[in-house]
């Protein structure tokens, strides 16, 4: 078992990477680059990016459920400001969130 890098409550940013080619990536485009909070650690699962191509000995990767504010995800979101979306994201797609306390203090 790999030890998870993040804990519930941690602020994380989804990597804004857009690799091309023959891939099987379970990180939706719409959430890349967005920042949310770890809701729970789901456990460690074989990396689907390897599994999809027949590598059943794929390394296990920690999987998280990350909660995002809908208003942060969609610029034009009109629902309740408390509306959220939870998405499962593998650890190698997460980075510690960068705090923007100096530049964006509005």
């Amino acid at each position: 078992m790999t030890d998870p890098l993040f804990n519930p409550g941690d602020a994380v940013t989804v990597s804004a990477r857009f690799p091309t080619g023959r891939r099987h990536i379970r990180t939706p485009f719409y959430i890349r680059g967005k920042t949310g909070e770890v809701e729970r650690v789901c456990g460690a699962y074989k990396n689907p990016e390897d599994l999809a191509f027949g590598n059943y000995n794929a390394a296990r990767v920690s999987l998280y459920r990350v909660r995002f504010d809908q208003r942060h995800v969609w610029d034009d979101y009109t629902g309740n400001p408390n509306d959220t979306i939870d998405i499962e994201i593998y650890e190698h797609w997460l980075e510690p969130a960068v705090t923007e306390d100096s530049s964006d203090a509005t």
């Binding site: 379970r26 990180t27 939706p28 959430i31 789901c42 456990g43 699962y45 689907p48 999987l63 459920r65 809908q70 629902g79 309740n80 408390n82 509306d83 959220t84 979306i85 939870d86 998405i87 499962e88 994201i89 593998y90």
Partner: peptide, 15 residues
């Protein structure tokens, strides 16, 4: 109700 939170779950992986 607008006062209730709507929480979407995008079932992207192993859950």
């Amino acid at each position: 109700d607008p006062a209730r939170e709507v929480r979407v779950h995008d079932s992207t992986a192993d859950m």
